[in-house]
């Protein structure tokens, strides 16, 4: 951003959208700002700081959580109410991110839109079937998590469109959830992330979402594993079979941290562990 001459601070989402639509590729968005500083695009002449337009609160109403795009990860981690949402999996996922100063800067909106292969919160958001409120020049729309992460969100968003809020519906049924991360050190990027959300009726699992992260470009649902368990009781053997199914579906990348083979093996281990944790939490709730 060596050519950036001004920075604009929109006061609300409409102003942000207007600025972005007027400036196209000249404008670069700053949110938490942990990635923007590395931008070297010479076209960028205008910085747009989205952190001054509100949208920085966590609200609960009628079983639905609404989280502004500017809510930082440290705020989420400390929020007492979220600790009960699907076993606290969102808190677990944001706690898994980097280190304290990174969580103090990164916003949930930024993390969702600018998802990297190893990003932890999107894994939980996809598993919780969060809704993503978008605002753009053509008005407002809402995407479900599956649509939002169907391809990279930056391609899902239209030009000048921004993510304003993320909404998560609580379940009225018994439910549980878990987010687990496997990394080689406490502050390393993930080898594998797994998030599980399950909704039960008695001992039977009526709805299940299993999401795996860090193995390929975007977090993905292990649908074969979900299908094996949905409508069933979550016994040890069934869980083990589902974990194997997830492993078979995983297309794991090699990277500097580990090879695809170890990753794939860990998908099975982590899916198994996440399912067991989610099951225990669901049982505790019922």
């Amino acid at each position: 951003m060596q050519n950036a001459k001004i920075c604009l601070y929109p006061r609300d989402a409409s102003e942000a959208v207007r600025i972005l639509s007027e400036n196209g590729k000249r404008a670069l968005i700053l949110a938490g700002g942990t990635t923007a500083s590395a931008n070297e695009d010479p076209q960028v002449t205008i910085l747009v700081d989205l952190t001054r337009m509100g949208l920085d609160t966590i609200e609960w109403e009628k079983g639905q959580w609404t989280i502004g795009c500017n809510v930082r990860l440290d705020q989420l981690a400390q929020h007492p109410g979220l600790a009960a949402l699907y076993g606290g999996m969102l808190v677990e996922a944001v706690q898994a991110v980097g280190s304290t100063p990174i969580r103090n800067a990164v916003t949930l909106g930024g993390s969702a839109v600018q998802v990297f292969r190893w990003s932890d919160p999107p894994v939980a958001l996809l598993a919780m079937d969060a809704c993503f409120d978008l605002q753009g020049p053509g008005g407002e729309r809402t995407l479900g998590a599956d649509a939002f992460f169907a391809q990279h969100p930056q391609r899902v968003l239209n030009p000048a469109e921004i993510l304003t809020r993320i909404r998560i519906q609580e379940s009225e049924e018994d439910s549980g959830g878990a987010f687990v991360k496997l990394a080689k050190t406490e502050v390393d990027l993930a080898v594998v992330d797994v998030a599980v959300r399950l909704i039960c009726s008695g001992r039977r699992c009526t709805d299940l979402r299993i999401v795996v992260g860090a193995t390929q470009t975007l977090p993905w649902r292990a649908q074969a594993a979900e299908d094996l368990l949905t409508g069933k009781r979550l016994g040890g053997r069934a869980i083990a079979a589902a974990a194997r199914a997830a492993r078979e579906a995983a297309r794991c990348r090699d990277d500097v941290r580990t090879d695809g083979e170890y990753r794939a093996e860990m998908v099975e281990v982590m899916v198994r562990r996440a399912l067991k944790m989610a099951r225990e939490r669901a049982r505790q709730q019922s």
């Binding site: 280190s99 080689k184 050190t185 406490e186 502050v187 390393d188 990027l189 500097v256 941290r257």
Partner: peptide, 28 residues
Amino acid sequence: LIEEIKLDERGRLRNGSFREYKIPSTLD
């Protein structure tokens, strides 16, 4: 346990940063 400089087959460093080459943090 965790520190190792990794080279590719052409002798290039694959992990020349604290993000890729982890030294112990307070939590480790």
